[in-house]
């Protein structure tokens, strides 16, 4: 009985985890600043963006295959905040995404675009790689193959 209960809790909590959360720009900065030697791989995507949807599994795979490394994958959706319940959460469910998914708690796209990177012109997909300990901050406004993504994030030159 206890065992069943534990399974139920696990199921419930894993389901609860598979939901997008709002993220303020301040919390975003703080998370990265406190990351020490963690490499953050932050992908900006949208449910309406076909090339983004195509490459999302690469980010999932990157995370799963490198669980031993200090690597964290954050998927930040640029869908409007109003689409969180209606579009983003159902998308997470149907695509079985297990990485952390966020939407910036900032209605003005321009503010978060410039905040993430001054050179970001607004296209998605885009990816930011940050490592505070090694002062790395690389921004890529393009899509990746899995091999490219891996070589840019795991033991980069």
């Amino acid at each position: 009985m206890k065992f069943l209960f534990a399974i139920l809790i696990c199921l419930l909590s894993s389901r609860a985890g598979a939901q997008a959360k709002l993220l303020s720009l301040k919390d975003f900065d703080q998370r990265l600043a406190n990351g020490k030697d963690t490499t953050f791989v932050i992908n900006f995507w949208a449910t309406w963006c076909a090339p983004c949807v195509q490459e999302l599994p690469y980010f999932e795979r990157l995370r799963k295959e490198n669980k031993a490394l200090p690597l964290q994958v954050l998927l930040i959706s640029v869908d409007s905040r109003s689409k969180l319940e209606k579009l983003v959460n159902p998308f997470i469910k149907t695509h079985q995404i297990e990485s952390e998914v966020y939407i910036f708690d900032e209605p003005d796209q321009q503010k978060f675009i410039d905040h993430v990177d001054k050179n970001w012109r607004g296209s998605v997909p885009a990816t930011l790689v940050v490592n505070t300990a090694s002062s790395r901050r690389s921004f890529y406004e393009r899509e990746f193959s899995y091999e490219e993504l891996k070589s840019l994030t795991i033991n980069p030159e």
Binding site: Q110, I113, W120, G122, P125
Partner: peptide, 9 residues
């Protein structure tokens, strides 16, 4: 000069 998200060319 403004920015917004959009689809890559």
């Amino acid at each position: 000069k403004t920015k917004a998200v959009g689809c890559t060319v």
